[in-house]
Write a protein that binds this DNA or RNA. Structure first.
Lengths: 358, 358
DNA sequence: GGGTTATCTGAAAACGATTTCATCATCCCT
DNA sequence: AGGGATGATGAAATCGTTTTCAGATAACCC
């Protein structure tokens, strides 16, 4: 019993028409007489026919699959982003080819080659080591791409980021207005534009309010939980430890929280804490965490809109790349308080009731 | 300037050989003389050639893309699972087509049709409403599939679940040995095998230890944060509220925690709490949450192994489906304590130091 | 040297769809 | 009634690969 996949040919035979007509009936934009169309559709339904999208993409020279390249889904933040993107794409009739790269440059290159090989209609990616050679490659293969979260060299792609600088500025300013001056900064590798921008926001705020930046309080490395653990420990061990910490990414927070717990630091009495990204569990930690929140859904929507614009209207004279930034809000929770005088005297209750924002 | 994608034909011309030979040099298993192979590879590199995997899959009748169908990535739990699966697959040279279904039956059907249409080599899916018609459809299109987390009717697919019954049993037993007898159960829709199995574990433990199940303490509905909020509130409002709660999924925990905070319930002094799944932030909540933990990486490994077995050795006489269960451990944290006598007397410190397990 | 292998190579037929082009009937209009 | 427009259909080319098949060349053995 040689089982074969049902093809259009089978449908055509069953319906007693040519393959061409069957094709038109199933998906064609051209005209087919009503009774023939019905016959074909009936046959297709009876046979459980499902068009081979690869063959279709091959012939049409264009698939309806979008590649998504993110560092990792283990990070709740990127997971939520991927979720928003995939939902949005499916709603528009696209499929998602997903590849986490772990921010490994070689892996990223490899992945992008593969995606092009898979003939994706377009790419949404969080660039890590994307260079101009790769940009040229993508252009050469006419694969539109939009960068999210981080920018690419020369902003040569449509880009949607968060308002990194402004957000970091707001977070830092908030700590300063609470009276803090020794504000630790736990940040990520400056090779990424998002990390540079956040640092910029921190530095700007410090400058604007006349607070000198103490290099000892600046801890920059890879954004991992382990780095959070170490960086936080380093800060606490200083002769003059910070009274507040600004963490530039949720990725380091598990580590930071671990250290604060294990060192029995009383947050926010002894130390205030603000994190750049907001993830759902920040509302339930001990204490809950004040954070800069941005809408992943809005980023998804913007990125997809830009991408589909390029996919569906391959203009002869393409518009120059645009750079969008998604705005943010400061969610004040329990991890921030007015700087306490030497003896931890009465402190203000700053905590927004949990659940107000989530 | 008519830009075209680089194809094998271009490479062949550049190298001065036929298309067939170029194909063999690039990917063929057949023999090609050394100098010709080198010429072709050089040409390919010079042209930045990347094979069109769709065309290849069409001809070879088999792609190297695996479809992954999960309810949602917004749930940190499934996100971690998807991450584990994608990493594992990429390591083996496969790609991932991802589709979240939001547990919507119509969406699931649609998605599976699409995946078959995309000609995936195989499917890994968390079944929600998968019925025998769909199973027949998959069989007919020779698309191997393995079910994860939940089982399918008749266990007609290779399946990898967690030890739901045993885990729930262990969690419940643990609460009982702490002295609790009024143990609330917040669970999910019994249409899913995982939820049935967890309920089973709860009921078994209660029976085995001679504790009657009070229907008032059993709250079953869709596993969402909102349901956690409501269910928990209902339980607290009872004339005789529970002294402990077993939540059958991490999905309800944000809601449960929110209610417990807003109602100022002292956990674990007034109420002990155990959750079935473990996610990373359970270690940092106020208090930290005792949980049943299983390894997503192990599930991923098992599922992929089973799937690739069927993909790569399409045996004439396929083996019958197998059912594997991934084991678990009970991670004791701060949300569980010995049942306090009427006045909340001294209570045991049960909390494992944070970070010990994470 | 002739016959037999072995080893490479190229022409051409797939894979399953879409689309161009040509054909043919039909209809409308003067 | 003839001619052009219109609309439905089928044959065949095409997308970019792989693979069969057969031919060609070289190598080898007696």
């Amino acid at each position: 019993m040689p089982k074969r996949r049902i093809t259009l040919k089978d449908v055509a035979e069953q319906a007693g028409v040519s393959i061409a007509t069957a094709s038109r009936a199933v998906s064609g934009a051209t005209t087919v007489s009503d009774d023939v169309r019905q016959r074909v559709l009936d046959a297709a339904a009876a046979l459980n026919y499902q068009p081979n999208l690869q063959a279709r993409a091959l012939r049409r020279r264009g698939s309806r699959v979008v590649g998504l390249v993110v560092p990792s889904l283990a990070n709740a933040y990127y997971a939520a982003l991927a979720d928003a993107i995939s939902q949005n794409l499916m709603r528009r009739g696209y499929h998602l080819l997903l590849a986490p790269t772990a921010d490994d440059p070689a892996g990223e290159t490899e992945t992008l080659y593969d995606m092009v090989g898979q003939n994706v209609a377009g790419l949404i990616l969080v660039p890590s080591a994307l260079d101009s050679a790769m940009l040229a490659y993508l252009a050469e293969h006419e694969t539109p791409a939009v960068a999210i979260v981080r920018r690419v060299p020369g902003d040569a792609l449509d880009t949607v980021t968060f308002e990194d600088t402004q957000g970091a500025y707001a977070a830092t300013r908030y700590l300063i207005t609470l009276g803090h001056r020794r504000i630790g900064y736990i940040g990520g590798d400056e090779q990424f534009s998002s990390n540079r921008a956040r640092w910029q926001g921190y530095a700007d705020a410090m400058r604007d309010f006349g607070v000198p930046v103490d290099p000892q309080l600046v801890k920059i490395d890879q954004l991992r939980a382990t780095w959070g653990t170490l960086a936080c420990l380093d800060l606490l061990k200083l002769a003059a430890p910070p009274t507040a910490i600004f963490a530039a990414s949720n990725a380091v927070m598990p580590g930071v929280m671990r250290t604060l717990h294990s060192q029995r630091v009383d947050v926010p009495a002894q130390l205030s804490l603000v994190c750049f990204d907001d993830v759902d569990w920040f509302a339930f930690t001990r204490p809950s965490i004040t954070a800069i929140r941005s809408s992943q859904a809005r980023l998804a929507e913007a990125a997809i809109t830009l991408l589909l614009e390029r996919i569906e209207q391959p203009a002869a004279q393409p518009r120059p790349p645009v750079l969008l930034e998604i705005d943010f809000s400061l969610v004040v929770r329990g991890s921030t308080a007015v700087l306490a005088p030497q003896p931890p005297a009465q402190r203000l209750e700053q905590e927004t009731p949990d659940g107000q924002r989530i």
